[in-house]
Design a protein around this nucleic acid. Structure first.
Lengths: 103, 103
DNA sequence: GAGTTCTATCGTATATTTACGATATAGAAG
DNA sequence: CTTCTATATCGTAAATATACGATAGAACTC
């Protein structure tokens, strides 16, 4: 294997797994479920971390496709990308379907 | 939020996300789908990495619950834990169900 | 018991991630 | 045009993850 080869879909899937694997990002995603159309400032308050740190986490979430931000005047309004999440859900279900009990 | 509080279930979910977010571990899991009851040595050959590195990755996978190893004589036979994977699948589906399109 | 095989763990170097403050930018308000 | 607000990005220190070789232990063979 040496240099791991992954398809474009797998790259995307890995980015989503990584994005969701950090507790702060996971909680931020859950927060967005409750507070659709929230802005960065809301998430900074929620996470209780430096604004730059939250912005960095948001970048990871954006790059995973789970979240998208739209500029609303001086602020940026964030929300979940349902299509990406649905795709993710299907990927996990497909993966699970391939598995069988073996222990 | 400051010190992120997560439930026991969420801790487990985060461990699984993290375990699957590394390309080598992801590929190892996929390999185990194809090769049930494989031993560490098979995975070392497959991954083309040092034995100690593969063993370390296996530890992460074991701690996530996705994989379980049973000692078979001098070797350790690994396989996927279907129950954990099914639980994980349901968690992702539940999470997705809470989401709605908003962009 | 000595030697062999297979694997886990230890110690450690390097790479990556995560956190912060400082700075830059873009739009709104005056 | 200046100021204020909201946010992204930069530079960087500290923490964590990832890779390796060396070592240790457990089971099998002789």
């Amino acid at each position: 294997m040496k240099q791991v080869v992954v398809s474009r879909d797998e790259e995307q899937l890995l980015r989503i797994f990584k994005a969701l694997s950090h507790p702060v990002r996971y909680k931020m995603v859950r927060y967005m479920v409750e507070q659709p159309q929230c802005i960065t400032g809301d998430l900074v308050e929620f996470a209780d971390l430096a604004q730059s740190t939250v912005s960095q986490h948001l970048k990871v979430l954006r790059e995973s496709g789970l979240v998208c931000g739209s500029i609303e005047g001086p602020a940026t309004s964030y929300c979940l990308d349902f299509e990406t999440f649905e795709w993710f859900r299907q990927q996990v279900n497909t993966l699970a379907a391939e598995f069988v009990a073996c222990c």
